[in-house]
Simulated scan of single mutants.
Amino acid sequence: MIVVAGEALIDLVPQGAGALAGLKPALGGGPYNTAVALGRLGSPTAFCSRTSRDAFGEALLDGLRTAGVDVSAVQRGAEPTTLAVATIDEHGSAAYSFYVDGTADRQFAAPDRLPGATRAVSFGTCSLVLEPGASAYEELLRSAAAQGLFTTLDPNIRAGLIPDPDAYRARFKSWLASVTLLKLSEDDATWLGGSPREWLASGPSAVVLTRGGDGLTVFTRDGAEHSVPGEPVDVVDTIGAGDTVNAALLHGLAARDALSPEGLAGLDAEGWTELLRFAARAAAITCSRAGAEPPYASELGAF
């Protein structure tokens, strides 16, 4: 079982030119997209979060169930669902404005236990920024690592939500000792002001850097570096692409029984290349359609 911990929200996505061109609500949030993508790929997956009892919250849970994701660890609340208004540029890249005050996911409390047979726990995005929930997710990250579980972190920086960048950067560094696999984009790396080799020295067994259409690169503890190019695709938008990469990496590692530091260390150049190419193909499919619509296993074939 792979557990994805973090926010679920509603993206309001423009359907044409102009900021207010037919805004369409879409199910979203980085961890939510990762969980849906894992479910579609066929990995046993559970979602650990807190969602509203409003209509948006019900739709979010329905989306998880449809993807085959276990929602028994989802907490519920009367507060409204977080909203994110997307702006899509001419290259399909998305920027967001968030409406987060008093929303349900911010009141997340760390659970006493994770679902049975949990092998890995994935964290990231807004859930590690917005208090008081951020401290609860941080507690869960440290607890999962202390139990010897495989942990992944995708910071997926949303700078507009971070009032004190230096304090966040210090907090990010403090998480690394509890992280097995760090995945982040080039933009994230630039904003954080570090390098893969620096982060590896602080704890992770591997760092995967996404480079948009240029592909993916992994940096490993033994000093190795492996890259694959991006998959050519007509980009509609990039919403959910990084989240799809998270899911594809976890799915592929689970298929290889490599959800451990030892498993990562055992991957050779061929193994990493195969895994990164799988993630690049999955992300390309997501980019080829509007909104966060990750692929199904039938669209990718067996890993």
Rank of each mutant, 00 (worst) to 15 (best):
Glu7Gln: 04
Asp11Trp: 04
Pro14Trp: 00
Gln15Cys: 12
Lys24Tyr: 12
Ala26Asp: 13
Ala26Cys: 11
Ala26Pro: 12
Leu27Tyr: 11
Gly29Arg: 07
Gly30Phe: 05
Gly30Lys: 12
Thr34His: 11
Val36Gln: 04
Ala37Phe: 04
Phe47Ala: 05
Cys48Asn: 07
Cys48Ile: 05
Arg50Leu: 03
Ser52Trp: 10
Arg53Ala: 10
Arg53His: 13
Arg53Ser: 12
Gly57Ser: 03
Leu60Asp: 08
Leu61Pro: 12
Gly63Lys: 03
Gly68Phe: 01
Asp70Thr: 08
Ser72Asn: 14
Ala73Pro: 15
Glu79Gln: 14
Leu83Tyr: 11
Leu83Ser: 03
Val85Tyr: 15
Ile88Lys: 09
Ile88Ser: 09
Glu90Met: 10
Ala94Ser: 11
Ala95Glu: 15
Tyr96Val: 08
Phe98Ala: 02
Val100Cys: 14
Ala120Arg: 07
Phe123Ser: 11
Leu128Val: 10
Val129Pro: 14
Ala134His: 06
Leu141Ser: 08
Arg142Met: 08
Ser143Asn: 14
Ala144Asn: 10
Ala144Phe: 04
Ala145Ile: 11
Ala145Asp: 13
Ala146Lys: 14
Gln147Tyr: 09
Gln147Glu: 15
Phe150Leu: 05
Leu153Trp: 13
Asn156Leu: 05
Asp164Lys: 01
Asp166Gln: 15
Asp166Tyr: 05
Arg169Val: 00
Ala177His: 14
Ser178Pro: 12
Val179Gly: 01
Thr180Leu: 05
Leu181Asn: 13
Leu182Trp: 10
Thr190Leu: 14
Ala201Ile: 09
Ser202Asn: 13
Gly203Ile: 01
Gly203Lys: 06
Gly203Val: 03
Gly203Cys: 02
Ser205His: 13
Ala206Pro: 14
Leu209Glu: 09
Gly212Val: 00
Gly213Pro: 13
Gly215Phe: 06
Thr217Cys: 02
Phe219Lys: 09
Phe219Ala: 03
His226Glu: 15
Ser227Ile: 03
Val228Pro: 14
Val228Asn: 10
Pro229Trp: 02
Gly230Asp: 00
Pro232Thr: 00
Val233Glu: 11
Asp237Thr: 01
Ile239Asp: 11
Ala241Phe: 06
Thr244Tyr: 02
Val245Trp: 03
Ala248Pro: 09
Ala248Gln: 04
Ala248Leu: 04
His251Cys: 01
Gly252Ile: 01
Gly252Arg: 12
Ala254Ile: 09
Ala255Pro: 13
Arg256Asp: 12
Pro261Ser: 02
Asp268Glu: 02
Trp272Asp: 03
Leu275Ser: 07
Leu275Phe: 01
Ala290Thr: 15
Ala290Lys: 15
Ala292Asp: 10
Ala297Met: 00
Ala297Gln: 07
Ser298Thr: 12
Ala302Tyr: 13
